[in-house]
Design a binder for these strands. Sequence first.
DNA 1: ATGAAAGCGCTAACAT
DNA 2: ATGTTAGCGCTTTCAT
Lengths: 337, 337
Amino acid sequence: MERRPTLHDVAGEAGVSAKTVSRVLNGDGPVAAATRERVLAAVGRLGFRPNLMARSIRTGGPDSTVGLVLPDLGNPFFGALAGGAEGALRGRGLTVLLGCSGGDAAREAEVVGAFLARRTSALLVVPSGGGGETAAAARAAGVPLVYLDRPGPGADCVVSSNRAGAREGVAHLLGAGHRRVGFLGDLPASLYTRRERLAGWREALAAAGLPAPAELVAGARTVAEAERAALALLALPEPPTALFASNVIAATGALLALGRSGRRDVALLSFDDLPLAEVLDPPLSAVAQAPALLGATAARLALARLDGDGTPPRTETVPTRLVLRTRTGEARPPYCE
Amino acid sequence: MERRPTLHDVAGEAGVSAKTVSRVLNGDGPVAAATRERVLAAVGRLGFRPNLMARSIRTGGPDSTVGLVLPDLGNPFFGALAGGAEGALRGRGLTVLLGCSGGDAAREAEVVGAFLARRTSALLVVPSGGGGETAAAARAAGVPLVYLDRPGPGADCVVSSNRAGAREGVAHLLGAGHRRVGFLGDLPASLYTRRERLAGWREALAAAGLPAPAELVAGARTVAEAERAALALLALPEPPTALFASNVIAATGALLALGRSGRRDVALLSFDDLPLAEVLDPPLSAVAQAPALLGATAARLALARLDGDGTPPRTETVPTRLVLRTRTGEARPPYCE
DNA sequence: ATGAAAGCGCTAACAT
DNA sequence: ATGTTAGCGCTTTCAT
């Protein structure tokens, strides 16, 4: 296996100097048409590909990569988010470095360190710890940082409209006449998104002049827990007539609970859409997020910083969308409406 | 914002030569304990992080990155695959470069080119075109290439047991007494995975001494098409009593068709598991793939090549798992005793 | 045990 | 319009 050809090899092959080859490749200084031809021919003949790392070193600036740190690629939400970011960045000639933190602050710091060592031009991070360490590292390196999905200290941030979306979803249930709407989600609501969705539930009830009793709030971390929690809610002396599931896990558990107990009289609405929502019987309405747009927005924000935007850190909110599904040509009462 | 500190800055701060700092950092030559202390202190004080690109350039070898090319991160399957690969690679100190081809051969070539220009140490690619261009580029660069999910020319490959899995799934339906099992999938079966699953369907029928008539094979590319196609199958003079959906889209369409027409007498089994499968009524059994394991396996294969494995290209098959779900919701994976 | 010099592949700053 | 020199941040000689 041969050594890969360098600029000098091309220069030799074309009978010019290295700098001239560089000029041709970068459209830099003026080059005679004939020379350019010869250089390009040599490049083709040798199959030369410039070494981007060497270029980066010499230019001194940041490398044409952007680091993306996610908690977990097994979650479709983060996958879609990565896709959105990648698309926006590739369009600008940037390559994505991908890292998983597993939701662990130490691993996040590790990954961020590795990215910074590659002189990434920006960092997009779904923060796992307090975020302070990542922010400090990014600042020290002079690299723009954008938090994704959850806010963090001292940097730009792109989030879904968790609170407003939840509020809208619950308001829809209230508009359908429900007066007791249970909240099912991951508790304690220490994570930003959970906290916001819970707040949205509270706000919707308050706006309707209704109380938000603690007994209507149930925590669950797994599908099985959520199923049990939903059943417990429905077994209350004054049970809810509708459930708001604040995430996919909770929604799945609630669906199981309703399905297995044959309760078709209880309405259900979930935050974060499910792929099979319209296939369910009855179909499931949801507050849908736009993860790809979230990723793309974060990328745009980072690019703006790279382009010199020096304004104070700001938070951009990507709107959620209430997706109401009904069963067409069916007599059975849908969960929602 | 200051220039980031370099090896020389550290050397100056510690009162030693650059090479000594390098030795300390790489555990290279012998260094006096006292000197090491001083150097490490200086590193800490300055917040020095070695420039990985500069190191890579000097060492001449490949960079500590691995390029991963996927068709589409919006698809949870590929997200999980990426997660598996990332985990296996980070464990070995490698960083993942992520690129999306969008299923387009030209974009794949573009992304591969960008990765190779960064001197990636290996390439993991879900091939979109014939794959020839990618293989040629990788070979020319002397970079190990592993195809993911679909085979390609002249390189290692990691795939799911598409054919055997489909065969097993259909055999299960046959074992339940069905004699006419419809095939619902993306046609024409030009893509490897589709072809294999169709072949598995045929093989299962053949093994049971049954015909595989063309009328039982229906193609569909979207959920709506799949729904129509499923209904068409069920409207045949001699309709199938069971359907085998060869992918998630087809399964979704079939579920819609069965649900809306109220047909609870038709069995359904899908290739590729659905997150809500157990919530459905009746629960849906499926041939589950292991995308994360697919990614991790590809990573291991690439690492083996980097470690000098020079054997001829080989194909590794990651087994699928038949997940049978019943009314009680207890999943009974037959392989897990 | 440490350092000086050279050079990886490339481009910025001056030549010419 | 092209070439020369120097040097990016690091590691490899080869000294000492």
